[in-house]
Design a protein around this nucleic acid. Structure first.
Length: 497
RNA sequence: GGUCGGAUGGCCGAGUGGCUAGGCUCAGCUCUGCAAAAGCUGCUACAGCGGUUCGAAUCCGCUUUCGACCUCCA
């Protein structure tokens, strides 16, 4: 069906993608913990896997895309005094936990829509799947791989590792972990410090709590993803995605849990996006270098020189391969903004180009070159979703388009077929697969009429060589953020900054 | 300390053995009343040191250096 290959974190090599059920793909991506505002770092996985989802659909697959919302809260620090992030913040802000969760869920959705990320097919919440999680934990206990202590349940990693390859995904060696894992307080309940919590007994101050066979408490870190992915995608599904920082312990634990419950590994292909860094350091709460999406889009942050449009951020992210780190800088974002404006304008020019009517191409070499650039876009996507190379090729095509419009390239240099292929390539790859949109929608009839009047006045001024007036019109408009451009044929067009 | 991954031109970033991605910046030119836009041209880099090879940014070794994970983390 396709020739898609991509890097599987589990086997550490590129593999040909073959879905379990022909024509269908099950895709699970770890969603956000909605205990705070989404930030630039969050943008990366969601844009990355949005493109994966879009490309799979472009290839003709029917995709069930599941992306969870973690709203049950996790521990501030495993093993220490249980401190639910959601509950803690809620007390500080004097909000109901679910009110807080709702607020940040809404903000997250707003951010995703700003980025033009398509909604997942199912967006399950952890709080909505407590029963499924409890059932999974019960099964793990029954099979002898978990134990209860004081109302908490822990996964027995050491026992698991005797039969299964614990640590394969993240490259850990159990003996090393046993030796090198930092000593944390309050781990007495665990048999080994590598064990992780499946269920945690809730102390009295903990607001979010549910009744379980082990008393009142809340689910551990990793069980929600195992419960929800298997519920909606099956015991084994095709692709599981997330940030690289989730490799260990989150995804490693998911594999262990699911393997015990279902008797086999849960995922065929693991995909991990790399981090966004700022001054070389990962963007994250621990580093105090977070730029929230609201700040990014408004420019309201000390290190931001300006506001950045969501589409500029998306473009900037897609100009780098998803497995490379991406270092944030104003310079880089500004370069992406200029680049994207130029590329998108070329696309708009392309949409207005009239086919010459000639079936054949006058410039066979150029025609062939353009066809190659177009064809390669699919090949690049098939090779581990190389969006950077796709964009590079679109930039190769752009001067040809602009050249035809500007007269530097003969109108009949390319065949009608090739013109159509160029247009299809931009539409399919730039819009549908990369998910890019115009920076602003210009569908304002009234503004168009006002501009038509100003343009007419300026044309008349120029006709009588009254350049003072024509310049004044152009300059004043520029001050207002409306750029007038004189076209070759004496016409004028405008763009809004 | 353990494990893993990077170091590419002024900047951002593709790229896994030969055919010098692309973007931004900068300089020159064409077009233009002047601009802007667009087009053309120029700027040939791969941390260092060894090695393998006819040939290495790309493979191997060492060094320097940065980072990620090992604790919630996208």
């Amino acid at each position: 069906m396709s020739d898609l290959h991509f890097y599987n974190s589990y086997t550490r090599q590129k593999e040909k993608f073959e879905p379990i059920t022909p024509g269908h793909v099950g895709l699970y991506v770890c969603g956000p913990t909605v205990s705070g505002e989404s930030h630039l770092g969050h943008a990366r996985p969601y844009i990355t896997f949005d493109v994966v989802n879009r490309y799979l659909k472009h290839l003709g697959y029917k995709v069930r895309y599941v992306r969870n919302i973690t709203d049950a809260g996790h521990f501030e620090e495993e093993g220490r005094e249980a401190e639910d992030k959601v509950a803690k913040k809620a007390q500080l802000e004097r909000l109901e936990p679910m009110e807080l969760v709702q607020k940040y869920t809404n903000l997250y959705h707003w951010g995703m829509h700003s980025f033009n990320c398509q909604d997942p097919s199912i967006e399950p919440t952890a709080t909505g799947h407590i029963i499924e999680q409890i059932n999974m934990i019960k099964t793990i206990i029954e099979k002898g791989y978990a134990y209860e202590v004081n109302g908490s349940v822990y996964f027995d990693v050491k026992k698991y590792a005797e039969k299964y390859p614990y640590g394969k995904l993240s490259g850990r060696i159990l003996d090393d972990l046993l030796e090198t894992t930092r000593d944390l307080e309050g781990q007495d309940e665990k048999r080994n410090k590598v064990d992780f919590a499946l269920w945690k007994s809730a102390p009295p101050e903990h607001i979010m709590r549910w009744t379980s066979p082990w008393g009142e408490g809340f689910p551990g870190w990793h069980i929600e993803c195992s419960a929800m992915s298997s519920k909606y995608l099956g015991e084994t599904f095709d692709i599981h995605g997330g940030g690289m920082d989730l490799l260990f312990p989150h995804h490693e634990s998911e594999i262990a849990q699911s393997t015990i419950v279902h008797g086999h590994a849960p995922v065929r292909y693991w995909m991990h996006n790399n981090m966004i860094t700022i001054n070389g350091k990962k963007m994250g709460k621990s580093y105090n270098n977070v730029i929230k999406l609201t700040e990014l889009f408004s420019g309201n942050h000390p290190i931001l020189q300006q506001a950045y449009h969501p589409m500029v951020v998306r473009f900037y992210i897609l100009q780098t391969h998803y497995r490379s780190t991406l270092d944030f800088s104003n310079e880089a974002l500004q370069a992406s903004e200029k680049a994207f404006r130029r590329l998108w304008e070329a696309y708009e020019v392309l949409q207005k180009l009239q086919a010459s009517g000639n079936a054949g191409a006058k410039d066979a070499a150029l025609d062939e070159q353009v066809r190659t650039w177009c064809r390669e876009c699919g090949e690049f996507m098939d090779d581990d979703f190389n969006t950077a190379k796709v964009i590079a090729n679109l930039f190769e095509i752009a001067p040809v388009v602009n050249g035809i419009k500007g007269g530097q390239v003969a109108a009949d240099a390319l065949s009608a077929d090739t013109l159509k292929l160029m247009l299809d390539t931009f539409r399919i790859y730039l819009e549908e697969v990369l998910g890019m949109q115009a920076l602003q929608q210009q569908d304002n009839d009234k503004l168009d009429q006002v501009m038509a009047l100003l343009i007419e006045m300026r044309k008349e001024a120029r006709a009588r060589k009254d350049f003072a007036t024509s310049d004044q019109i152009r300059n004043k408009l520029a001050e207002a953020g409306v750029l007038l451009k004189d076209e070759k044929d004496g016409n004028m067009s405008y763009t809004i900054e």
